[in-house]
């Protein structure tokens, strides 16, 4: 077992983990934070995406021990209490989801995308989300949601 200290969505945890534990399994099974889901066995779908020290990673493709000392944000940590993150509000407003399975990853990847590029073109949005697969929406409303989120976030600056 390896000792692990991580901050997840603002709370610091100290745990013993087996080295083979994937970060996503640690979040779900050891911490009970099941907002982050698993959608594939091949590192393709992106539904497990979280922010590790501010950048998006696939939590199924990282060992929990590798996150020692880092700060993680999952879908459960993006809102400010009852105030939704602008990306969450935009997904609701633009119907950026149907079944919702891809949504935790889509929202996190969109936050990462807008952090790096606050004013993306449609092509940049489609490319920026290429690590996230959606089986329902056909992506169109997801793209609209990100465009709307960019507007909302522009409005919150000043």
């Amino acid at each position: 077992m390896e000792h692990l200290k991580v901050t997840v969505d603002g709370t610091t945890y100290q745990k013993e983990v087996e080295p083979r534990t994937l970060l996503v399994h640690f979040l779900r099974e050891d911490l009970g934070r099941v907002g982050t889901v698993v959608g594939c066995d091949t590192s393709n779908c992106g539904t497990c995406t979280v922010l590790v020290d501010g950048v998006s990673v696939k939590s199924c493709s990282m060992l929990a021990v590798q996150a020692d000392g880092s700060e993680i944000t999952t879908i459960q940590g993006v809102s400010d209490g009852n105030d939704w993150h602008p990306v969450q509000s935009a997904f609701k407003e633009c119907h950026g989801l149907q079944c919702g399975y891809c949504t935790p990853g889509m929202v996190i990847s969109s936050i990462d995308l807008l952090n790096e590029n606050p004013n993306p073109t449609e092509a940049e949005i489609r490319e920026g989300l290429e690590g996230n697969l959606c089986r329902c929406t056909g992506y169109h409303n997801i793209v609209k949601s990100v465009q709307r989120a960019a507007e909302l976030m522009e409005g919150t600056k000043s």
Partner: peptide
Amino acid sequence: VADPQIRHR
């Protein structure tokens, strides 16, 4: 190469 998440690591 791959996608933004994979390129981060």
